[in-house]
Design a protein around this nucleic acid. Structure first.
Lengths: 204, 204
DNA sequence: GAAAATCTACCTGCTAGATGGTAGCCATAA
DNA sequence: TTATGGCTACCATCTAGCAGGTAGATTTTC
């Protein structure tokens, strides 16, 4: 028995991330999942309900990712790099970040949604701040680095790179930006620019 | 005599930058400018034509800005910072970057538009690469900095910060990211984080 | 310099199709 | 037997865009 609700979420996410929130319709989604438009309302009463569910699911997947990075990587730079690699998947699939896509349409977004998105970013910034503060404490980061401000910058850089490189150089451009970002976090004179592993890690 | 075409461009830009391309309609625009919907077609035959005109005008304004930065600032970091301050205006007005907004909806964008947007970003990256290469040559930047990669990163960071901070901390967050970004370009141990001047410079 | 033709900027009124959403019916599976 | 999940058939509203008209300014022609 197929899980229509899950299929709806999956396809809706692809559509929204590719063409924006108001750029996708129940009609598109119905076609993608191959059920009638009206049937979608059975699973998600309104379009806003669907969007909220989309963000919650996306957020939950990132929660898992953040946790797994902490347990797999112990070095601060490696953690940031691993975090960045989750964005890479988006570039490779030609999809923007769900929350960035929604944030663009802020002015017309329902309040619930706007709050959820803000929380999404706040959480990531807080997580990075923690990671960076730890890195400062153990000396693996450039001395004098401000964890709070740098955390904001990391999220901004990655979100921007995802937006940009999806349009321009593709994953090569994104990898270059991620490497440059990571380099700027390291203590000076370590010298060697770390070549980013080319393997794809996971999908978010 | 009022310049309706200019008014249309101005209002359309605000609408698009605030709610996305497919999130704004000729109906909205007609209301904002207070003419009938059909009359807009007299000035811009199709919505795509309007979008193209919007991007061209936006691009031209940035061209001017890039030129004026070069003549006003001679230090590389100061140039990047001045460049970043043009984005600040967007945060303060609660408006995203026009080209970023359009880039989000890539999958549904007419080809002309997609090309124009790509060119917009390419131009900025090339300009920054030039600025950074000059800065490397005269020693005002961190040694070992890769101008090409860093140029991409700068645009990514600023675009991301604009997207993010419009939703979160507002101009304070953006200023913090811009300062952190500029700091990461400077040679090490210069020490003092430069407080960003709080005045608003110009609008793009 | 007056008449004729053209152009500009807008209008009303329409169209075909898409939009999100509702009502109610029917099959299947628990 | 009763949810569940899907369907058909709607609806009102909005979408971009078109046809055709009008008032006034500008240009062309005699």
């Amino acid at each position: 028995m197929r899980d229509t609700r899950a299929e709806l979420l999956a396809q809706a996410e692809v559509l929204v991330r590719g063409r924006g929130y108001s750029g996708f319709s129940y009609g598109d989604l119905a076609e993608a999942v191959n059920i009638r438009k009206a049937s979608i309302h059975h699973h998600f009463r309104t379009k806003t309900d669907l969007a909220v569910a989309l963000v919650r699911a996306y957020d939950a997947r990132y929660d898992e990712a953040l946790g797994s990075i902490l347990s797999l990587q112990s070095d601060a730079v490696a953690r940031v790099e691993a975090y960045g690699r989750y964005y890479l998947a988006g570039v490779e699939d030609g999809l923007g970040c769900l929350c960035a896509v929604l944030a663009i349409e802020m002015d017309t977004l329902p309040d619930v949604l706007r709050a959820d998105i803000a929380q999404f970013f706040d959480k990531h910034i807080a997580w990075l701040e923690r990671v960076l503060a730890d890195g400062c404490a153990d000396g693996s980061l450039r001395p004098g680095l401000d964890p709070a401000a740098t955390a904001r910058m990391v999220v901004a850089t990655l979100e921007g790179a995802l937006l940009l490189e999806r349009l321009l150089a593709g994953s090569a451009g994104f990898r270059s930006t991620l490497a440059t970002l990571c380099d700027s976090l390291k203590p000076p004179r370590t010298g060697s620019r770390n070549a980013l592993s080319s393997g794809r890690d996971d999908t978010i």
